Simulated assay, not measured.
Amino acid sequence: MRPKVSIIIPTYNRSELLGRALDSVMSQGFDDFEVLVIDGARSQSTRELVRSYGDGRLRYVPQRGRGIANARNLGVLKARGKFIAFLDDDDRWRDDKLERQLEFFKELPENYGLVYTAFTYYHLEKGRILGIKRPKASGNVYRYLLRDNITGTSTIMVRRECFKRAGLFRESFPTCEDWDMWLRMSKRCLFGAVDQPLVDYSIHSGQFSFARYLTGRYRMIEEHGDIRDNPRILSYHLLQIGLLKVFGGDRRGVEDILRAFRLNPLMRGNLTDVLGSVLDVRTKIYILKFLGRL
């Protein structure tokens, strides 16, 4: 019998954190699920960790280290559930996360294909919450996703059929592959949002590379004509990128800022959004990480 939910957890040599993530799954009040642990390192320790739970709902899937987008795609292709949920190996769920999302899906029309939730930024080393990221939009969220990635992948539950319409994660993206996926999916289905934080998104040292993030961000501009060819939206991205660069000590960010103002001299439709973005908890955390303060 097929499970109701397939949970996809990509991992790479992080057994201790993976155990924390798996514990949060196994403590869910809803239990009709399967878990696909996609192991890019093909490590014995990860295989043994999965087996140690002694639970047939957990499936160990070796992967040849082709990155997180490939791992998620492999999970989607192997998933048997009607719904797919994602969990990064360094994050964890609250114990009512799956139940709350499934109940919300029951209340929504069929054209809602994805439900995401608020989440906390949790500092692993300090053991404390740094802030809460709440949903920015619901329903038709395409115009919001053109400007910002409004959610985190570990919060998402999506109808499996949506991938048939939107395609899979694009493995050529160095970062922002999740943002690209949800933007494409938002053109084909509506999004629901749960305002309660049901996920702890972990902040820890060595988490991501600023340079790789910017490469992915520029790739978003290149691949999406509704960003690239719209002066207001493009100027928003360049202004945000430029400010992040400057805060991170990269003076070349001034070039992006100047280009943003050339595209939209009065910043019509952008100043409020950019200021809101700069004050957003996610941006604050990114800046602190870039400065080596987290």
Rank of each mutant, 00 (worst) to 15 (best):
K4S: 05
A21K: 04
D23Q: 14
S24A: 12
V25C: 07
S27L: 13
G29S: 08
F30H: 04
E34S: 09
I38R: 03
I38E: 11
R47I: 11
E48D: 14
V50H: 00
V50Q: 00
S52N: 11
S52V: 07
D55Q: 11
R57G: 02
V61L: 06
V61Q: 08
Q63K: 02
R64C: 07
G67V: 13
I68H: 06
A69C: 06
N70C: 07
N73I: 01
N73L: 07
K78T: 09
K78A: 12
K78P: 01
G81H: 01
G81T: 04
K82S: 08
F83H: 08
I84N: 00
L87C: 07
D89P: 05
W93K: 02
W93I: 01
D96Y: 08
K97Y: 14
K97V: 06
L98H: 00
R100N: 12
R100H: 02
R100G: 03
E103H: 04
E107L: 15
T117F: 04
F119C: 09
Y122H: 11
K126T: 11
K126P: 09
K126L: 14
R128P: 02
R128G: 14
R128H: 08
L130C: 10
R134M: 11
K136M: 15
N140Y: 09
R143E: 15
Y144P: 02
L146P: 06
N149L: 05
S154V: 03
V158W: 00
E161D: 08
E161W: 01
C162F: 03
K164P: 00
K164V: 04
R165D: 05
A166M: 01
G167R: 03
R170M: 09
S172W: 15
S172V: 10
P174T: 15
C176M: 14
W182N: 01
M185L: 12
C189Y: 04
L190K: 11
A193T: 11
V194P: 01
Q196D: 14
P197N: 14
P197G: 07
P197A: 10
L198R: 09
L198C: 10
S202I: 06
S202V: 10
I203L: 13
I203T: 07
I203C: 10
H204R: 12
H204S: 10
F208Q: 11
F210M: 06
L214W: 02
Y218C: 00
R219G: 05
M220N: 09
E223H: 13
R228V: 03
D229W: 04
D229M: 09
R232F: 04
L234I: 10
L239T: 00
Q240F: 11
Q240W: 08
I241T: 13
G242Y: 05
G249A: 11
D250P: 14
V254I: 15
E255V: 10
F261W: 07
R262W: 13
L263A: 07
R268P: 00
R268N: 10
R268S: 13
G269D: 03
L271T: 14
D273C: 00
V281G: 05
R282D: 15
I285M: 09
I285V: 15
Y286D: 09
Y286R: 09
Y286I: 03
L288A: 13
G292Y: 08
G292R: 01
